[in-house]
């Protein structure tokens, strides 16, 4: 089945992505769409962490459907990803991620995606990467995806040897800026693309 599913992938990509594990911290607008894109790209092993449930107001930008309302996001996302590729192997953690649990959750992941919504959580995860035990792992984070600015304002920037950040670095989510699917998806696509590039070593450090 996989051979047909990934027929359009560049040569060799499916084999490279299939053997590696990616962790996603937060399964909202960023995390759910990043997971969707990675599974479509042939990533087979994911670790998903979130404590929230799907609500109606998530459906404007997150990879969930009417049927998912009220379910845990991790459970709903697992179901929806299986609709793309039933052969994927997904580990889920229904919990609010505290810094003491981060390494344990993502121990086997080569790349971890920061897909949180609050500044506090984003900072907490990035700060962990100062510890030597993360030196062989990569973090792909996000900052600045709200509002209606040009999609071209969103970029991927390397801020440390093993940390990349995607977004416009400026536009925060609040009542006036809102969260629009197109800009959230552009940022999520930047993150997913960076993950694929890291996993295939198709980038310049």
């Amino acid at each position: 089945m996989n051979s047909k599913l990934f027929l359009q992938n560049p040569p060799g990509l499916t084999e490279k992505l299939g053997n590696q594990k990616v962790g996603i911290a937060g399964c909202g607008g960023l995390g759910s769409n990043i997971a969707m894109m990675l599974v479509r790209a042939s990533v087979q092993n994911l670790v998903l962490v979130d404590f929230d449930t799907v609500e109606m107001n998530n459906l404007n930008r997150q990879f969930y459907f009417q049927k998912d309302i009220g379910k845990l996001k991790t459970d709903a996302l697992l179901e929806n990803l299986m609709q793309i590729n039933p052969e994927i192997c997904i580990q889920i953690h229904n919990q609010k991620l505290e810094k003491e649990q981060i390494y344990k959750c993502f121990k086997d992941c080569h790349v971890i995606v920061e897909a949180f919504d609050t500044v506090e959580a984003k900072t907490m995860l990035i700060q962990q990467f100062q510890d030597r035990q993360y030196s062989s792992k990569y973090l792909v984070a996000a900052s600045g995806l709200a509002g209606l600015k040009s999609a071209n304002s969103i970029q991927t920037k390397r801020i440390a040897n093993n940390i990349y950040v995607c977004g416009d670095f400026f536009t925060e989510s609040n009542a006036s800026s809102g969260l629009l699917s197109s800009r959230v998806m552009v940022t999520a696509a930047h993150q997913a693309n960076m993950v694929v590039r890291i996993l295939t070593e198709n980038y310049k450090p």
């Binding site: 937060g26 909202g28 607008g29 960023l30 995390g31 897909a115 949180f116 919504d117 609050t118 500044v119 984003k122 900072t123 990035i126 984070a141 996000a142 900052s143 600045g144 995806l145 709200a146 801020i159 950040v165 977004g167 670095f169 400026f170 536009t171 925060e172 989510s173 609040n174 800026s177 969260l179």
Partner: peptide
Amino acid sequence: LLLYLPVGGG
């Protein structure tokens, strides 16, 4: 020196 302050939204 690079100073990075994340903004909320996700």
